[in-house]
């Protein structure tokens, strides 16, 4: 999915001569509205094919709003807004920690509406960050590789399983490379906070020559093809959207705990169209009233009842706690530990 960004930045330079697009983008798509009057600039980490149904439905309701949809990785998004003061009306990211830092450091606007007030307390922070999806981190397994074995229910089960069957799993385990993936780092740090078993699991995976990935999509593809027997900490919504495509794929939700990532939106301080951005936030906050979009996008909307039913599900808490793992030394130490666990000789 990664395009040469040079041509695109050139395109941007022509479009907006003042913007210095030093941050790296993956794609930029313009969605003209039927009676387009203003253009809502969205920077997002979500792929266009995931988000497009939401944009089109939004424009059905708001026919005067064109949308410029810019896709970037979460770190580039952070860079664009935090360091380069790039002008966007809405920043949508799955990296809750970076979004929290943006709001904490004063790069987000406060916004309240009837729609945002319906959000549960854990899905909103400072009236600046608004969660609109709840996406669990899951284990996906290949049915073929697990033939004759009971899928693990907890991380302890998984550790024993891996230890007992190195011949099956050697080189066939996939997980995020937390050094390059924001979501992977978020899941890994939350794991380390939630349970002591995380470091043992990392060591076991390292010993079995785990394959490291930058995104969930590639892991799903490789499990489906049988190249991998399992992939740990895959974003559940991506996996469920591919289930029909790959019948061999199975999703395992652990019963000890399941980290639930919240995809969030915020209005940057220097937004040019904050009113239209607010409309989009209202639309996103009310996604749970549009089951057809949930089906099209596979993005599970905020649903407190569902979380209450599953006591293992733990939505990652928005707030200053997320800043801890962004601390320079903390991150350095964490990655050092992770590398030494993962890459042992």
């Amino acid at each position: 999915m990664r395009f040469a960004y040079f041509a695109l930045s050139l395109f941007f330079a022509m479009l907006m001569p003042l913007r210095l697009a030093a941050f790296e983008i993956e794609d930029s798509i313009f969605y003209p509205a039927t009676d387009g009057l203003v253009t809502l600039q969205i920077i997002s980490t979500a792929d266009a094919n995931v988000f497009e149904p939401i944009i089109l439905e939004f424009q059905q309701n708001n026919p005067t709003i064109n949308i410029q949809y810019v896709i970037a990785s979460s770190t580039e998004l952070m860079k664009a807004i935090h360091e380069e003061a790039a002008v966007f009306d809405l920043a949508i990211s799955s990296a809750m920690d970076l979004q929290t830092k943006l709001a904490n450091d004063g790069f987000a606007q406060t916004y309240t509406s009837n729609a945002t007030e319906t959000l549960p307390g854990w899905a909103i922070w400072r009236d600046q960050i608004f969660a609109f999806t709840q996406e669990p981190a899951v284990l996906i397994i290949s049915d073929a590789a697990f033939a004759g074995m009971t899928p693990p229910e907890t991380r302890e089960d998984l550790i024993s399983l891996l230890r007992d069957n190195p011949e099956i799993f050697d080189g066939r385990i996939g997980t995020y490379d937390v050094r390059i993936s924001g979501a992977g780092y978020l899941f890994a740090t939350q794991d380390s906070r939630n349970s002591d078993s995380y470091w043992r699991l990392t060591e076991v995976m390292g010993r079995l020559n785990a394959q490291l990935y930058g995104g969930s999509g590639d892991m799903i593809r490789d499990v489906a093809s049988g190249e991998l027997a399992l992939a740990y900490n895959v974003v559940g919504s991506y996996a469920s959207s591919r289930l029909a495509e790959f019948p061999d794929l199975r999703i395992v939700r652990f019963s000890d705990y399941v980290n639930v990532m919240l995809r969030t939106a915020l209005i940057p301080k220097n937004a040019e169209n904050p009113v239209e951005a607010g409309l989009m936030i209202d639309f996103l906050a009310e996604l749970n009233q549009r089951p057809e979009l949930t089906e099209l996008t596979s993005l599970p909307p905020i649903n407190p009842a569902q979380l209450r039913e599953n006591s293992a599900a733990r939505p990652i808490r928005l707030g200053p706690g997320l800043l801890v793992f962004l601390d320079r030394l903390k991150k350095q130490n964490f990655l050092k530990n992770w590398v030494s666990s993962m890459e042992q000789e």
């Binding site: 709001a103 904490n104 450091d105 004063g106 922070w125 400072r126 009236d127 906070r193 808490r317 707030g319 200053p320 706690g321 800043l323 801890v324 793992f325 601390d327 030394l329 903390k330 130490n333």
Partner: peptide
């Protein structure tokens, strides 16, 4: 000198209010 920033050090500040923390 190194620092292992405790998670609770900042999360405790977030538990009483939604204030910015530095």
């Amino acid at each position: 000198v190194n620092l292992e920033l405790p998670y609770s050090a900042l999360s405790m500040l977030g538990s009483i209010s939604q204030d910015r923390v530095f």
